[in-house]
Design a protein around this nucleic acid. Structure first.
Lengths: 109, 109
DNA sequence: CCTATAATTCGATAATTCTCGAATCATGGA
DNA sequence: TCCATGATTCGAGAATTATCGAATTATAGG
């Protein structure tokens, strides 16, 4: 990942509505959620939500797929992983014992 | 971690200079770097850098310790870990096979 | 083809954030 | 005590970002 993409991703996440959308999609799993469903659940007007979803998509954090009239969004695991890797790059000066416990705690399961 | 802290952290990281400072400190390890050294290395005027460092510190991503006239900053691993955990919370719907590979790839060593 | 629905794009205003000169604070040494 | 140095705080102008009404696009069904 390059610096610009990282900044775009972090900026996308650093806003209340977008962070909530992102976390909802992370928790929703591979099937994701329809834009309209997200709008209802998080109480965001559709056009504003659309702007937010576009920003998260541009950043590579979520993906969109059309399903008839409905547009479905889901977390993009590759993009998320790339961002986390960029943040932690060369974090342990070659000494695994420094960063292994930290990374292990992040594991959610 | 609560939502406000997460947003503060992500906002702190979503700016070129601050992201560079953060990554420098992550790579510098536990001893960290003096404010003046960071200013020189990244070519940022001291007062602007000071504002950035304060923001990263408030967000819980870095720590400061005084060492005579010199103030030293270092990555705050607990804060960083808390942020990553918040982002990935409940990411795999109880199915470890979905997120374990993702997390493994993040490991830097 | 026409209508209804789901979603997006456009444009403008409101709010927030960035940057840096100037002034201030804290520490160590003469 | 006085000075020099490292660092921070303050304040204001410049730049960026957020939000939402109105208009537009895309699709499904009658």
């Amino acid at each position: 990942m390059d610096e610009l993409t990282a900044i775009e991703s972090l900026a996308a996440l650093s806003q209340e509505s977008r962070l909530r959308v992102f976390r909802s999609l992370v928790q929703a799993g591979p099937e994701g959620l329809a834009a309209g469903v997200i709008a209802l659940e998080l109480d965001i007007v559709p056009n504003t939500l659309s702007t937010h979803l576009a920003q998260l998509t541009r950043a590579g954090l979520i993906r969109r797929t059309r399903d008839g009239r409905i547009i479905r969004y889901a977390a993009d695991n590759a993009g998320i992983r790339a961002l986390l890797t960029y943040l932690l790059e060369d974090c342990c000066q070659g000494r695994p014992e420094l960063c292994r416990p930290a990374v292990a705690t992040v594991a959610c399961c």
